[in-house]
Design a protein around this nucleic acid. Structure first.
Lengths: 245, 245
DNA sequence: CTCGATTTCTATACGGTATAAACAGTTCCG
DNA sequence: CGGAACTGTTTATACCGTATAGAAATCGAG
């Protein structure tokens, strides 16, 4: 624990933010750099897309440019910052929510679907964002801004809008996480072993057993749609109540 | 990638499940084991509670017993299984939801608050569950059973009950994750740097800027209560609609 | 144009990690 | 009682991120 803000941490944070905002000034002297932080991040993204986040090591990323691992440290302070740049890279295009309609429900739904698409295209994203350091770059803020712009139409207090944004973003993140769990384990043998154990201890888990025989664990059709519908209904109820009160 | 179910994986899965369910038969010959998987997991939990999940290394855990790291492998197949046992250990007591009332709303709220308490007491839990391998042990299933038992009162289809459980569990998990992010970064210097960057690019993030001046990012009072209220309102709307249709 | 300052990139090394393999010592069963 | 089974240690391997030192390359100033 005990990670207070000493001066070294703060300097690291400053350079990390400068990197995310692309505010690093290029030097004039010396050999021309053969890379940029952005190109490195893109290479790391392609590596993660094909081989998973664990395959993103300094050595392997540098290898894509036929460079030594340490060469990367001329462009990026460390691996944590590289992962941040990877996240920023795949959020490059800010979502245009107006295509879905003018009401906030359609727009926030569109936002969720776009975010879901990104998570599907880059399954490592959920793991990468779990490594925290919540230093958001401009692309990440752009996505946030798009969602908040839609939620302004709700007429709710700004703090509520923010909370709702977090709920929607969290909903997508959770589904992406669940999909990670699911794809990894869901094979014949796992079902057999788990089913056998559960059947043997069925008396300890009566509701769970009933849920299983009721088909509650059959693959769901549209989990994102379901969760989103519940959530937006709840928000609508809040709006109605506020307008009444 | 390419982690299909070959025989070695399946055997590992079998022993991992046997471990979680405490179905390992004790050997008769040889020296008495000085440890048990459970005691190892408890030691690892105390280590993670005080020093974080990164401090849970085989060497450090073994050191708590004044043993070598390799000794642990007599009790636990590997680190992944140890983390699973840690999760199982902190979920030992199944929550009694009847204390909160008889209606499903009170009970599922109680479930969420208990789950939140566990996440508060063991902040590494959210990171540990992110390491996936979703092989749930009896304690984890006990928590799930308690929640599903409450949701049966909704009268919704079992598949919907399951989805709602996932939404509630995900809500708590997300808040725990957000708290991790927040505590780590939220110091004076970070606010200064980030605020300066954002002010300079305010025109790119109009809604976000409005939200900030509107106080949307002031620390929220009861995020769990807010999210839960939205979600349960949404579920109630579904029930009403179903009863009507 | 030349030379020193500056920068890139490499090589090497260090302290970590998980864990495989061989081995020594202990205990019980046949 | 002797060998099989089991516990724990030692040693070794293959990674990881990254600190440090130095070689090679390039530009700006004189």
């Amino acid at each position: 624990m005990a990670r207070s803000g000493n001066s070294k941490d703060n300097r690291d944070l400053g350079t990390a933010l400068a990197l995310l905002w692309d505010e690093t000034e290029a030097p004039t002297r010396g050999p021309k750099p053969s890379l940029t932080p952005r190109r490195i991040a893109e290479a790391a993204v392609s590596l993660a897309d094909s081989d998973g986040l664990d395959a993103v090591t300094m050595t392997k990323v540098a290898g894509l440019f036929k460079l030594s691992a340490m060469a990367l440290y001329r462009y990026v302070p460390g691996k944590a910052e590289l992962v941040e740049l990877m996240i920023e890279a795949i959020l490059a295009e800010r979502p245009d929510l107006s295509v879905a309609g003018d009401d906030w429900q359609s727009q926030i739904t569109e936002w969720a679907r776009r975010s879901w698409d990104v998570h599907q295209a880059h399954p490592w994203l959920v793991t990468a964002t779990a490594m925290r350091r919540q230093a958001m770059g401009p692309h990440q803020l752009g996505w946030m801004d798009a969602a908040l712009a839609s939620l302004e139409q709700t007429g709710l207090p700004p703090a509520d809008q923010h909370q709702i944004f977090l709920l929607v973003a969290g909903l997508v993140r959770n589904l992406a996480q669940q999909r990670l769990d699911y794809d990894e384990e869901h094979d014949q043998e796992w079902n057999r072993l788990n089913g056998e154990l559960l059947a043997r201890h069925a008396h300890r888990f009566p509701a769970l057993t009933r849920a299983i025989v009721g088909g509650a664990f059959e693959p769901a059709g549209d989990p994102l749609g379901f969760g989103l519908a519940r959530l937006l209904d709840g928000v609508q109820a809040l709006i109605t109540r506020q307008q009444a009160g």
